[in-house]
């Protein structure tokens, strides 16, 4: 069984990330990140879900990656280059709907047409960059505080009543 994940981002600055960052800076000025990026995260699982095949899928299905406005890359998880950019302390969270029709629909579409893919998982990955002086532990705490919406003035990136939140890891370079 193979599993391959990709990240899909906009070529232009992402307006959702910009709005989220300005909102976090307003509601949590002491702990907000200096940088925030947003990516679509797709996870393909199945005996044929290897990199070469996923590359073919991505080039074929422009609903997953629209080459006119989006770029994509394979995602390596905690060791991915986007989480090890020099100069900052990084953390990332993966937000997934508990009941997710996007994943269900794509699992159905690709499962019917391509025997090698058994499931597709769609999530949103938020990458938060903090000052280098912020410790890894502090970055983790801040990230979860800003991701998990518990109150009107606490948390933004996910509503835990309907979404799963997974802290992917932190790095400092």
């Amino acid at each position: 069984m193979s599993e391959t994940s990709i990240l899909v981002g906009l070529k232009a600055p992402d307006p959702a990330a910009m709005t989220a960052l300005s909102t976090l800076m307003r509601i949590s000025p002491e702990t907000a990140p200096l940088h925030l990026s947003r990516y679509d995260h797709w996870r393909f699982t199945g005996p044929g879900a290897v990199r070469e095949f996923v590359s073919e899928l991505v080039s074929h299905y422009t609903d997953i990656v629209n080459p006119n406005k989006q770029t994509w890359s394979f995602f390596e998880g905690e060791t991915d280059p986007i989480l090890t950019d020099p100069g900052m302390t990084w953390a990332a969270v993966l937000v997934t709907d508990r009941v997710d029709s996007i994943s269900e629909n794509w699992t159905g579409i690709l499962g019917r047409r391509h025997r090698g893919v058994e499931s597709v998982g769609y999530s949103v990955l938020w990458r938060l960059g903090f000052s280098r002086s912020v410790s890894l532990e502090d970055a983790r705490d801040r990230t979860m505080t800003m991701a998990v919406t518990t109150h009107r003035d606490r948390g933004l990136l996910a509503n835990p009543v309907s979404q799963l939140i997974e802290l992917l890891g932190t790095s400092k370079t």
């Binding site: 709907d97 029709s101 919406t149 109150h151 009107r152 009543v161």
Partner: peptide, 21 residues
């Protein structure tokens, strides 16, 4: 998202309006 409804504890987010399914 404001925690005004259901408001068992006002301001606490206790529900969601999730994607139709």
């Amino acid at each position: 998202e404001s925690g005004l409804v259901p408001g068992w504890e006002a301001g606490r987010v206790e529900a969601a309006l999730a994607a139709n399914h």
